[in-house]
Design a protein around this nucleic acid. Structure first.
Lengths: 249, 249
DNA sequence: CACGTTCTTGCACGTTCGTGCGGTATCTTT
DNA sequence: AAAGATACCGCACGAACGTGCAAGAACGTG
């Protein structure tokens, strides 16, 4: 077998099995483990797999949505979340949207900070259990994909609250498409929550900038500001023509 | 199995079970507890879990006293929870109370079981995210100590639901004092939830039997049955004069 | 065809990593 | 306070790793 063919076979195996074990491959292909290791080393160097002790794994660890969840918050996400958290002052009332970025924001809130938090995300509510913040949970039908309460009951409850700040998580922030997300029901809920707060801040970690999803939440000019991380050189100029952009350092 | 794969598996377990027990994992994976402990230590160092005595817990659900209690799911609690979970049938609607025992019940529900769950506990709602069950979350003011929504808004929402089963968690089950808990507001909420279900089952792990707290929830004769674990030789006879008692094997 | 170059492969060596075990320290529970 | 469970530390052993080296194959060139 050609060495190049073998590399392809390894990659295909990696796709189907989700992992490569040096020992097994050596036995199966009738080669020494050294050769397999060399292959794995080269593939890893080419950025096609991740080398681990005993074999190799795909670049994105594991499979499916599990990967999305365990993915450690990107540095960008953390920076944006930290800055957003710094806007919360003692005694203020804030609404926290659902999502991984707002969860990161929740973790960035000082444990001892006394404030009022309103959220429709049970995940965020649970994360605030050991905080001094008092929590008002908006109930309703749980939308599994993004782990937030939605529906008529949630809307009714949301309509009765009001806050100073709303931290909005989105899927995409685009100069023309505005703020977007993947589900219409979710979009409506976000819109409603925004209407219940005096100021709305959008959490714009780098992967959101320039992206757009199917369902519009709000146009850019209806939010107070976008907290954005310009580190990847995204074009913030286009956004700034429609909304105020806060650059995190 | 690759060591790296094992770490991923642990993280996935952590997400589905909400906890990792070193002893069990060692037995299940055929490794020494030391290796598992090393894994847990590394994962904790990477900020992916929180190390606790006996295993590890997710980062988010706090490190406060509530989290501490979730670790020590006694064998008794597990048995009672498992039996309670077996009462839930496909397509049925159940109300789950908050608390550590009902959280254990939640984990005992088969992931693929299609049913409707109503709960006022964000922790339980979060634990059901990867289940087939559809979840209706009752919102309201979050009562930190037991991590459930209470207050007027919660009561109003609870009044509108109805279910076949209600699984009630309590602090004490006493022949004379009846079912009791530590907070009056919480007691009222439990009472209300019980009125919304056709049948109410009390989760009576061994440490509850014979105990009594300050605030009464219901007299014993107003519940369908107490699911009790008689393993520690508690006096079930006295209870049986007031309520039906289901002994778990 | 002859020769040198390059690439691949397997082996040997020292190094690193993962694992289990014994001992000791610490925590939990009675 | 004592007993049991759990955790951490250091050690030893084996597996996996990387490197250097030599043998062989494939290739290009004269």
């Amino acid at each position: 077998m050609l060495a190049a063919t073998r590399r392809d076979l390894l990659l295909e195996r990696l796709r189907t099995d989700g992992r490569l074990v040096a020992k097994d491959l050596a036995l199966e292909l009738g080669l020494s483990e050294d050769s397999i290791r060399r292959d794995l080393r080269d593939l890893a160097a080419a950025g096609l797999c991740t080398r681990v002790y005993g074999g190799a794994l795909p670049i994105s660890p594991a499979t499916g949505d599990y990967a999305a969840r365990t993915t450690v918050a990107t540095e960008s996400k953390r920076r944006v979340a930290a800055h957003a958290a710094s806007l919360i002052t003692r005694g203020s009332t804030v609404i926290l949207d659902g999502g991984t970025t707002t969860l990161e924001l929740t973790r960035a809130i000082p444990t001892g900070l006394e404030c009022d938090v309103i959220t429709h995300s049970p995940t965020i509510a649970a994360a605030l259990l050991d905080h001094a913040a008092s929590v008002y949970l908006i109930g309703g039908t749980l939308f599994k994909h993004s782990a937030v309460a939605t529906g008529a009951a949630a809307a009714e409850m949301a309509q009765r609250v009001s806050a100073e700040l709303f931290f909005l998580g989105v899927v995409g922030i685009h100069a023309e498409a505005g703020l977007t997300t993947g589900d219409p029901e979710e979009a409506a809920m976000k819109r409603l929550l925004a209407s219940r707060a005096a100021d709305t801040y959008v959490l714009g970690s780098s992967e959101k900038l320039g992206a757009a999803a199917r369902h519009a939440i709000l146009p850019l000019d209806e939010v107070t500001a976008i907290i954005a991380d310009p580190s990847d050189g995204a074009d913030l100029g286009a956004l700034e023509q429609h909304a105020q952009v806060i650059r995190v350092p």
